[in-house]
Write a protein that binds this DNA or RNA. Sequence first.
DNA 1: GCCGTTTTCGGCCCGACTGTTTTCAGTCG
Length: 577
Amino acid sequence: MPSSINLKVSDVLYKMSLLGEIEGINPFKVRAYKKASEVIKMLERDISLLSDDEILKINGIGNNMLKHIKDIIRDGTFPEYEKLLRKYPISLLDLFTIPGLGAKRIKILYEKLSIDSKEKLYKAAKNGDLSLIEGFGEKIAKNIIDSIERGITQQKRFLISEAMESAKGLVDYIRSLGYSRVEYAGSLRRGKETIGDIDILVEGNENLSEDIVKYPLIEKVIAKGSTKVSIILKNSIQCDIRIVKPESFGAALCYFTGSKEHNIALRELALKNGFVLNEYGLFKKGKVDKAIAGRSEEEIYKALNLQYIPPELRENQGEIELAMKGRIPKLIELKDIKGDIHCHTNMTDGASSIYEIVEYLSSRYEWFFIGDHSIPLHFVKGLDFRKYLDSRNELLKLREKFRKVDFDRSIELEVLKDGSFAFGEEELGKIALVIAAAHTSAKMKKEELTQRIIKALSNPFCDVFAHLSQRLLFQREELDLDYDLVFQKAKDFNSVFEVNGQPDRLDLKSENIRKVKSLGLKVILSSDAHSLEQFSYIEYALKNARRAGVQKEDVLNTYSYRELNEFFQENRKRRMK
DNA sequence: GCCGTTTTCGGCCCGACTGTTTTCAGTCG
């Protein structure tokens, strides 16, 4: 996980890049600051603990940047940055969040009208002061007013589920117009935790733009050309639709899937090999009329002598080097998943009855476990042991009727403040699958909290540990735990961590899944469904796991029902010794 | 400011769209 010092360094370098842009320094310097900011943000290890040599090994960081970084770690700033801060107010950077405003225009606004905040900008636009400046016409002023009034900024991000729903709606609409090849790209396709905007690719012709802007859920059309339409939907998600020809579809899909860093690395590799790569195809240098590849992504990677790289791995985090050596892992796929372990019925905070869930899942999976919260979570009617047993017996009776599928009752068992479980040992032995989780007392000291979790993991009956970090995206920070210590101890207990697919949880997050995998531990994916529709959320857990490079054999959902139960029984026995 | 199977200097991804113009700069992804 990025340490707070990494985020600080990354933030200062990013601000430096923006101020540098305003100042008008060499654009490649700007890019260097941005790139350094980016890689440090993604860095897993605490940069202040790395040696100079180790830092210099990071791609995008040279001697000058190293010096800046060390200054920032020590002083929180560095001389070149200070110099620009004396010249421009930091509040100027807020203006970058307004679409259509970049460094050049921001500088002019500041120098000519002393505008250094959204408030001043808004007033000036309303008063018509902007028209005093050459190059600022009516439309720009209107756009500024519009954006500020509606709070449309470029930094807003969305849960993947919200973005996916919007994307599917639009894709269906375009298909209904008679276009058959329509795909979403961008961070949605890469399965990122949160999504900034939606990218959609359509094989079609220029007539399509006219039809697209008739989509009823559009709030605003930003741009409309023959190959690109940009819109903002009513739920304020921006959506870029690209219209491409069949011979370019693969190249465009690759290009618009990104990430940007992956693309740049691919293009640089292409150049080294005497090719030019763009969204239309892969071309021999100087012969841009005839593409070597472009119809499919596979074609392009192959022509670059690379193994195919799944979208989830395209972050320029070493995947290109792996692909050169043919060592891209075969990632787990949806079809490998045989069952789910974690959901909620209407006995606690779910929407459906046990029967409805069995009926729904019996046609989808080979096996499944139906869970529920335990005491002492009274606010969601958590089950006591008696209720667990009774409802389990009710469930098991349904085996008669649903013979083709295996199922049993799990429980999301509360980890108490001292790390013990809400049920005693004798009771625990009678529970088919224990999913330990903490929902309360998060405000403990880091050391105490860490010990609490470790104690829970050491319990012989801790079959699975659910949503470890307790984060809720956009709402709640992750627990302040010593994660490395927790994972280290987890190795001793052969613990299994859940990868929760609720779009606001996605917990473990992919960085932590990677760590757990590297220790040789298994994970288990879950939907944590609270309604029938939410069982599909396991796909978000899957995406998260794929981004961590997880393979079929790392994931217990790929086991048969028998193998799975044997695994857990083995684990319990071993821990009791 | 970074980087090197063409390089320690001279490159650095590149095309689409908008707005304000009259041939293009700025922004964006």
